[in-house]
């Protein structure tokens, strides 16, 4: 369960973010939709603990993450939240397999003895069983995003946050990646929060949260 209430964050001298209320049930799929700059990514970063609000309540899986220290927040992120970014954000020096393993290394949810086995099976699941040793530069953009999806679910986190995960992909690849993401969310029983400015993508989600009025310019 995710609950955000009365959440305020000063973004700039005349810009601020305010979310009166956001709520997501466990295992739900929510699209955070709105135009560019509306504050949807800011909301996602606050929920995932990458940004701290100046005020308000952010409860994720029963924990008020605004009360956590920096190191507690790092630990919480590793155990509870899987990230998927628009630009994939794989670590360039490492192979597909190592990228997924590194995701598990910084979390304590999967025993180290099965890191390789888990990563291999997830990469096979996303169709990259034959590219385990390939580095990001040797993968297509669609393949890179599939590695990122495998990494996001590897730690058995309860929440996956995806920030414009199909934004850098062509429509055909984007569709395949989105299907894979929805399938894996169902398979792993996770809460999926997906940020998009594309209404057609948002429409494929059972819940759409309209973020259009989250960021305000002061007069």
């Amino acid at each position: 369960m995710i609950k955000v209430e009365d959440c305020f964050l000063k973004l700039g001298p005349k810009t601020s973010f305010y979310c009166e209320k956001f709520y997501a049930e466990p295992k739900s799929k929510v699209a955070l939709w709105g135009p560019s700059g509306c504050g949807k990514s800011t909301l996602l970063n606050i929920i995932s603990g990458l940004l701290r609000p100046d005020r308000g309540t952010v409860i994720v899986n029963g924990v008020d993450i605004t009360k956590l220290s920096e190191s507690q927040l790092d630990h919480f992120r590793g155990e509870n939240i899987g990230f998927i970014f628009q630009t994939f954000n794989l670590l360039p020096p490492f192979s597909a397999l190592q990228n997924v393993v590194i995701g598990m290394r910084f979390s304590s949810t999967v025993p180290s003895s099965i890191w390789n086995k888990t990563a291999k099976s997830l990469l096979e699941r996303v169709g990259l069983g034959n590219k385990l040793s390939n580095k990001p530069s040797q993968l297509s953009v669609g393949e890179q995003q599939r590695v990122a999806i495998a990494r996001a679910v590897a730690n058995k986190q309860k929440i996956i946050v995806a920030d414009e995960p199909t934004g850098s992909l062509d429509p055909k690849t984007a569709n395949k990646v989105l299907e894979l993401l929805l399938e894996l969310s169902d398979e792993h029983g996770v809460t999926l929060l997906l940020v998009t400015h594309d209404k057609s993508i948002a429409d494929r989600f059972p819940i759409i949260y309209n973020c259009s009025n989250l960021v305000k310019e002061e007069e």
Partner: peptide
């Protein structure tokens, strides 16, 4: 710095 931020997002602590 992006890689470091990714590692932090993945759960790496500042100390790590």
């Amino acid at each position: 710095r992006r890689d470091l931020a990714i590692m932090r997002a993945l759960g790496a602590s500042r100390v790590e």
